[in-house]
Design a protein around this nucleic acid. Sequence first.
RNA 1: GUGGACGUAGUUCAGUCGGUAGAGCACCAGUUUGUGGCACUGGGUGUCGCGGGUUCGAGCCCCGUCGUCCACCCCA
Length: 403
Amino acid sequence: MINPLRGMKDLTFEESRRYIHIISTAVNIAKRYGYSYIETPILEETALFKRSVGNSSDIVNKEMYQFEDKGGYDVCMRPEGTAGVARAFISDKLDRQPIKQKFYYHGPMFRYERPQKGRLREFHQFGCESFGEASVYEDFTIITMISQIFDALGIGFDLQINSLGCTVCMPPYKQNLVSFLTDIKEDLCEDCNRRIDTNPIRVLDCKNKTCQLLLSNSQKLIDNLCDECENDFKKLTVLLDQAGIHYTIDTNLVRGLDYYNKTAFEFVSNEIGSQSAIAGGGRYDRLVEFLDGKPTPAVGFAIGIERIMELVKMPETAREGIYLGAMNDDAIEPLLALAARKRLETKVTIEYNAKGFKSHMKGADKAEAKYVALIGEDELKNGTIWIKDIESREEKTVPLETF
RNA sequence: GUGGACGUAGUUCAGUCGGUAGAGCACCAGUUUGUGGCACUGGGUGUCGCGGGUUCGAGCCCCGUCGUCCACCCCA
């Protein structure tokens, strides 16, 4: 027996229904906010992810499905969606147009990690990217949209926000932090020593008690923002307050990808184990120019489908369609033409074996059909078919032609 | 990548001291060839993850491997 690869899963029945429901709910809402669908390749040049997600990130360092293709190109299965969409935005020369562009996408992403609950090697994201809008109103709008999606799916969440600053305020802060950390590096844990180089702000979030003690009076980025970042962040909190969207400010919230700046946010759930982030995103004003496009402000997010799969409240499913069956072998073949006709308008389940009445009723029940239609001895003789509405229990016998 | 737990039927699990595997649910067939979900009767559907080893004999003990889960790391 051949099983799926480690960290990859098949979706069937209940799970695939959930998947579809999540995607269609998100799509419907995204459309109302002016987003249109974009499909980008799963395979991209490795350089794309190195330049966008960032060389220092774990994703690029050790989690990419990277290989040389038969033409000798260094390629990667996409580990996330934003880079590809930004690349497409530039490839299609949309950065040269003064028009704001908004795209939504969904599909598989790949990261070579150790799988666990809520963390697969092939997983799925629904995401949106808004290009060309620098206003913090757009940050607010996008957060509003995500909460609307989660509300529509019946998912409870906590929203965490932070500001990562911009090219004006972030670099000096980071420099100060690194030198501060370097001074005390002897006393910091092993992980933190590694983080000093890769992601110094993460050090502030270390769970090690000794580290926490040493860092208790360290400077927060949020207190060192430039005026513009400071004002935008304040504005965002005011807008969220007015909209009644509850949030907490997490000064240690850092997105794992290098391209983020200013607003960063994460939606988390405490019901799904340690992989608690169900959506994440923020502003990435510099990404387009990193990828050789014209400087274009942008903001986006992605929802982890597998992470919310079991949180979704599914709408009740109604019975649908017709179950067709016969009690004599002679009556089976006439069912085929009937089925073809009925399938122009509804779902039809057809049983190819002649069976007893009760057996058919059970079959109709299992098929979740709304109607059961049977041809027995009498019906065959009279050219009629017997129909019963399984919900209302009303039944009647009609000529085949009027069925 | 590191540490730990686990792996028996479709599924959830039991399996004693080492003696060729069992229960609920699910599933299939039937209970008057005409009224479904309920009930009753019958049916075990299995490479005990895989590969070695110890033993007269392994689901059970040992080693390896693969996989799942949990924590770390990281992230959606």
